[in-house]
Nucleic acid binder design. Structure first.
Lengths: 131, 131
DNA sequence: ATCGCCATGTAATGTTATTACATCAATTGC
DNA sequence: GCAATTGATGTAATAACATTACATGGCGAT
């Protein structure tokens, strides 16, 4: 299967996120895309839904915002749990992945007989430059 | 120092959360407390801010909702990173803590020279009963 | 008593997300 | 060809979540 061809709206939203230096809210994306014919929030949310589904974009729950996936690898296969550091100073977001955490969480959740669908790990704080 | 005496509004909000069987949004809390004189969202948000600060309540970022802390231990000293499983079926939220994850995250974040202020770990899925 | 501090009350507004309904284009099956 | 289906889109309205701004009231300390 793989990631399908993006539609026009999906490409525009993806482009906006990819060229941004940080996370963007849906409404910020909307504003950026007014010139390209975007008029309503739903146009953004619909595109984001698909991009999230394809794994091209991540949602930052603690920010109600979205970032392009920075993972170099293919998006076709799962790349497990994604975690983020989020700097309160400069807004910089860094994505990372760790097998050890993933396994440990898996063990703990299994002990509850809980079936994981989506895992959110977000660390708010200050980056090296903003410490 | 320890947790200060709660004010009237803080007690009401704490009570609402403690007696609920699951997470509540700020507006749900507001509705529950109309009979006790609550009229505006701010009354709830102000109380929540303090309760969060005291560690009596947790915010679930992926739900925009709040739960009473179920941690049996004293709230006076830090009890590190808090993680949650959240069942999409029944809404049940389970709080847990794990030293191994805490240490591993600490190591990874340190490698970035990042200074953690708050860590969010939320696992959405289905509990044993709702699988 | 006056000041400062903090909790409170109220209204208005800002921000994020969804529902509902209509239209349009591409594809499929007859 | 031409319904029927499916998926993307457009638009408006509304719902849900959160904050700003400003006024008031209680209470302890000087």
């Amino acid at each position: 299967m793989g990631t399908p061809q993006l539609t026009k709206n999906q490409s525009l939203v993806m482009g906006a996120l990819a060229h941004s230096d940080g996370p963007m809210s849906a409404y910020t994306i909307l504003d950026k895309l007014r010139d390209h014919g975007f008029r309503a929030p739903l146009q953004v949310y619909r595109a984001l839904d698909k991009l999230l589904e394809y794994g091209l974009v991540h949602r930052l729950e603690s920010l109600n915002a979205f970032v392009a996936c920075t993972c170099p690898q293919d998006h076709d296969h799962e790349h497990g749990v994604t975690a983020f550091t989020i700097c309160e100073g400069c807004g910089q977001v860094t994505e990372f992945h760790d097998e050890a955490i993933e396994q440990r969480l898996s063990t703990l959740v299994r002990a509850q007989s809980f079936k994981t669908e989506k895992t959110t790990i977000e660390i708010r704080g200050h980056c090296k430059s903003c410490a």
